[in-house]
């Protein structure tokens, strides 16, 4: 060994480049174990964000039609669209959810117990109850629409279903389907989700509710049905919920503070900034606040719906990046950054 090499080895001894210890390795400021994530991310694939979107839509649509019912606003087209939409969303949702299970054939174990502390448990029960209620209500609608045949025993039986009463019963359940998804992801160890426990549920509910009038007005416009007043109301509701959604996203970003970084990462920014903030909120708002026309309304609806889907994907993908970042988790799980039992908000 030459003298210079020996010297080099001796000088570098204590600061070997492959060595881990962060305090002595000048290239590494962060403290962690070879960059291996200290927590594991959720395995959830595309089915889960799509379910979040569809479930939120089903909840929002029902809220809209039930409020219309309560206010005595009767519009056959609105009621019909809303009831069939709820049925469709609640037929698709369990398929997506069961598909995502590691052992799909054991899906029924979800209804084995009720656990109020587990949002996954309350969510399963809510989807179960809401799906059944929505099914009964849609059956009554189908009977009235003559889809079940004319005046046979089945039709007479189905027409006994008190659809308007069941709509009221289903309202809180449906709202839970829409908001509980947010609480579900915030009740984890993933920094970006857990930090935002206060606004996650409201944000998901509002996003679902902003897609609902978009969907309803889209269907009514495309089928050229629905009363003028309904469409005006839908546009007003769309604008109002988009504004509230934008406000809640802003509040969430403040609350997530530095842990919101994954939303602006290269992978997620197109979905979050492009798809949600610009495409899903700003663009439809610009279209809706201008002079109203059918084409513009249809375009705004499509954009808002796509924005809602992009938003769910952005949040789920952002959570994966957040969970895989040791620095994010360690700063989060130190001092008072993580939510503490004594925290009120």
């Amino acid at each position: 060994m030459s003298e210079t090499t020996r010297e080099g080895v001796q000088q570098s001894n204590g600061r070997v480049e492959t060595s881990h210890h962060p305090e002595t390795d000048p290239q590494r400021k962060d403290k962690n174990y070879y960059g291996i994530p200290p927590i594991k991310h959720a395995h959830w694939t595309w089915q889960i964000p799509v379910y979040f979107w569809i479930g939120g839509l089903g909840a929002g649509v029902h809220l809209f039609s039930t409020v219309a019912q309560l206010l005595g606003h009767r519009d056959e087209a609105l009621t019909r669209t809303s009831r069939y939409t709820v049925l469709a969303t609640m037929l698709i949702s369990p398929v997506l959810l069961i598909w995502d299970l590691g052992r799909p054939e054991r899906f029924y174990n979800m209804l084995r117990i009720i656990k109020l502390r587990s949002p996954m448990s309350t969510q399963s029960w809510s989807v179960f109850a809401y799906g059944n209620l929505g099914g009964l209500i849609a059956a009554r609608q189908a009977a009235e629409d003559g889809l079940l045949g004319r005046d046979n025993f089945l039709v007479r039986l189905v027409k006994l279903i008190p659809a308007r009463f069941l709509s009221l019963v289903a309202l809180p359940v449906g709202l839970n389907v829409g908001s509980n998804t947010g609480n579900l992801i915030s009740a984890t160890s993933v920094p970006i989700w857990a930090r935002n426990w206060l606004f996650m549920g409201p944000m998901f509910l509002t996003s679902g509710l902003s897609t609902a009038p978009s969907w309803l007005s889209l269907v009514l416009h495309l089928t050229r049905s629905g009363e003028e007043k309904t469409l005006r109301t839908l546009h007003r509701a769309e604008k109002a919920t988009l504004v509230i959604e934008a406000g809640l996203i802003g509040a969430s970003l403040v609350r997530m503070s530095k842990w919101s970084k994954p939303l602006f990462s290269r992978e997620v920014a197109p979905l979050f900034v492009g798809g949600t903030l610009l495409g899903g909120i700003t663009a439809p708002m610009a279209l809706l606040f201008g002079k109203e026309s059918r084409q513009k309304s249809i375009l705004a609806s499509v954009l808002a719906l796509a924005g809602g889907l992009a938003f769910r994907f952005a949040i789920i993908k952002g959570g994966r990046i957040s969970a895989d970042d040791p620095e994010a988790y360690f700063t989060f799980a130190s001092e008072a950054n993580a939510p503490q039992p004594e925290d009120k908000i």
């Binding site: 174990y33 549920g201 993580a338 503490q340 925290d343 009120k344």
Partner: peptide, 30 residues
């Protein structure tokens, strides 16, 4: 952190109740 352990881990379900109440308020407002 050197051992890949968090300094102050917390119970994620601690805020389920709070989040649910916030969602209920939001549902009323909406």
């Amino acid at each position: 952190e050197v051992y890949n352990l968090p300094r102050h881990p917390y119970l994620p379900q601690e805020k389920v109740k709070g989040g649910t109440i916030a969602s209920m308020i939001a549902a009323g407002v909406l």
